[in-house]
């Protein structure tokens, strides 16, 4: 896969282009800015990992892309383009033709994402028929093929079974079939393995990776599991407090992190091949949305904080082989 860097504002024909995305939640005590100028691209067939602590805005970015922010959350600025066309301001009806058909979604907990009262076949067939001009019988055949493809044994016999008749791992396979059955160009997978048994996680990730490669589907993989990222993704974006701290090819981000936050993050992951006396940890906690520090949001926890870090928000700039939003790199013009 291409490890080539893509400039965030470049004219490169990316499949998905997110530029300066801002998401806000109006509350009684003022507007909370949950995403503050997030920008990245995903090329066709590329797997982009998105990592960060809880509340960093990973899932929110995914929700904004598929146009399903929970009210009162709203996109307050920036734009999202799919294949060059803006999709962040589409009317509901047009956005429905994007969801499922062009952008699929996989959610965290397969125990709750399937409707318990409808058979999995019913849910697949209605999704297929929503997006493709197929008869009931053709859609059923396609549903069976998809169930076979995601590894449901005896798919033809089990298509009329209900979600509760499947295990968690099997249900996540069904969810993947549902997300991919209309062959979208992009899949937003929001922590697809977090709710699963550790022994199942690797299988699901491998399945997702294989299907994406076979169908040329780009994937935005939201997770907080660096192991999954390292194994699966082409590039990775590290998020912190609603902004992207660092983005670049997985190998570079893992081996040579530039942003102090990424450095801390990598230092806190146990590795099997190295013996370290002690895992490092990042002191403090990520700030709440209502109390984000001025300048770089990471500055109170940053071991290398400088005066400028408390005054100016750093933009993404080249730092080694990655892009990092840190005043350590490049001239900070305040």
């Amino acid at each position: 896969m291409s490890a080539a860097m893509r400039a965030p504002a470049g004219e490169h024909a990316a499949l998905l282009e997110v530029r300066d995305l801002r998401v806000e939640f109006p509350t009684r005590r003022g507007v909370l800015r949950a995403l503050d100028g997030v920008g990245f691209t995903i090329a066709r067939g590329e797997v982009l990992g998105v990592v960060g602590e809880s509340g960093a805005g990973k899932s929110l970015t995914g929700a904004a892309i598929i146009g399903l922010l929970e009210p009162p959350g709203r996109i307050a600025g920036g734009e999202i383009r799919l294949d060059g066309t803006r999709i962040d301001n589409l009317p509901q009806r047009a956005m429905r033709q994007v969801r499922g058909k062009r952008i699929g979604a996989i959610f965290q907990d397969p125990l709750t994402t399937l409707n318990p009262l409808l058979s999995i076949g019913r849910q697949l067939i209605e999704t297929i028929r929503t997006h493709l001009p197929l008869s009931e019988g053709e859609a059923r055949e396609r549903a069976i093929r998809w169930l076979e493809e995601v590894g449901i044994p005896a798919a033809r016999q089990r298509i009329d079974a209900y979600p509760h008749e499947f295990s968690g791992g099997m249900r996540q396979r069904v969810v993947i079939a549902l997300a991919l059955c209309a062959e979208p160009e992009l899949v937003v997978a929001d922590e697809p393995t977090t709710a699963l048994d550790v022994s199942i996680q690797a299988q699901i990730i491998a399945l997702l990776k294989r299907l994406a490669a076979e169908h040329g589907t780009a994937v935005m993989l939201v997770t907080h599991d660096m192991g999954v990222i390292a194994e699966t993704c082409d590039r990775v974006a590290v998020m912190y407090a609603g902004r992207i701290a660092e983005i670049g090819p997985v190998r570079e981000v893992v081996k040579h992190p530039s942003h102090p936050y990424t450095v801390g993050l990598m230092g806190s992951i146990p590795a099997l091949d190295r013996k370290v006396a002690r895992l490092t940890q990042i002191d403090g906690a990520m700030p709440r949305l209502s109390a984000i520090p001025s300048g770089c949001a990471f500055n109170p926890r940053c071991p290398k904080a400088m005066a400028v870090c408390r005054e100016a928000k750093p933009e993404l700039r080249p730092a080694g082989a990655t892009l990092a939003a840190c005043h350590l790199y490049g001239a900070a013009h305040v």
Partner: peptide, 17 residues
């Protein structure tokens, strides 16, 4: 508010459905 409704929306199903 449930996940399966959110997932149904994410699959682009019509509001009536």
């Amino acid at each position: 508010r449930s996940d399966y409704i959110k997932f149904a929306r994410a699959r682009g199903l019509a509001p009536r459905v």
